[in-house]
Design a protein around this nucleic acid. Sequence first.
DNA 1: AGTAAATGTTACCGGCGGGTAACAGGATTT
DNA 2: AAATCCTGTTACCCGCCGGTAACATTTACT
Lengths: 192, 192
Amino acid sequence: MPPRQRILEAARALFFRHGIQGVGVEAIAEAASTNKMTLYRHFESKELLVAEYLRALAAENVRVWDDLEAAHPGDPLEQIKAWLHSVGGHGEGIDHSGCAMMNAAIQIADPEHPGRKAVEGAQRTHRERLIGLCREAGLRDPELLADQLFLLVEGSRAAYRSAGPDGPGSSLCRLAGPLIAAHQQAAPVPAA
Amino acid sequence: MPPRQRILEAARALFFRHGIQGVGVEAIAEAASTNKMTLYRHFESKELLVAEYLRALAAENVRVWDDLEAAHPGDPLEQIKAWLHSVGGHGEGIDHSGCAMMNAAIQIADPEHPGRKAVEGAQRTHRERLIGLCREAGLRDPELLADQLFLLVEGSRAAYRSAGPDGPGSSLCRLAGPLIAAHQQAAPVPAA
DNA sequence: AGTAAATGTTACCGGCGGGTAACAGGATTT
DNA sequence: AAATCCTGTTACCCGCCGGTAACATTTACT
């Protein structure tokens, strides 16, 4: 396996565990079974390494969506549900890329950091894809529902960090289910 | 104003702008119109300063709830709506303490950090208070609705960081409104 | 084989950040 | 006025971290 890929993989694992600012380049190189020098032959600086790490994260994020589409072709509603299940459950097989994305968005305070564009772009395409799926599924108020689900998922990730795996974020499907069901009805919610 | 309070206030401002790891003790002291030495006479270490900063944040968080209760006595539903409005809108007058709480939860990777207990406790009481209000308001499925609102708000804060003030987090009230309305009906949501 | 490219190794630099020592000045109490 | 407490100032230590130089080593290509 080429060292560049090993470095990105090691960076990913360490960034997720200790935070972006919490890990030094030397630790990354060591975890990648190489040294600082070769790291700097592949990446100009730590900033750009972080940026590329985030781009890779974004790429994997869309890959998750593509896999879901391949698993449930022509069934957008099932894709949404499968996605909720893949980010909301606990145990193994969970997609943590979105969570890592959110961590990066918070840990990178500098608005000029090259990684911020990657994060913002990923979140944007993420949301648009969700809106598209809600629309394809023929759900009422697709934009509204998509934003609700989007925030629910982001909140679930945040709660995972602050309340642990047993917090309110663990029951994403239970929380999102009635929301989706409410948008499957033909009539809008009656006013109070 | 006593230096201890000035330091906490300066720390709060700087932590919010540049992140906890992004600001050094010297910058905090300088922003508090004092120096590093007096800072260390009031706080054993940066870790403990952070912990106390988070405790103060948690205290202000419950104060916000108390203010809401005082503003709408005996009307839990209005308290909830006012709270959503205070964290969801943009411009001035927004409560950023919860957002700072979430930032801290993500920026502090070390599970042994003394500030983590403050964060976890704050989130717990926060959620419990929300559940209590939903129950008092006579809403259906108060725990479910409370968790939905909780995640929606957390997600809104996260989106604020990754998508800016005009992202999906800006329309919290619009997103949460139908959710609350759905729980005001007597009959449960019909199965699909 | 021989050459070029990529990798490994060591040592180093400069800066910064957390934390402390020692002393000087100001305020308060009795 | 004396003693005490709190504050301000300066200087310093140590370790880490981002980044680089120089050279040795291996790999790969032809």
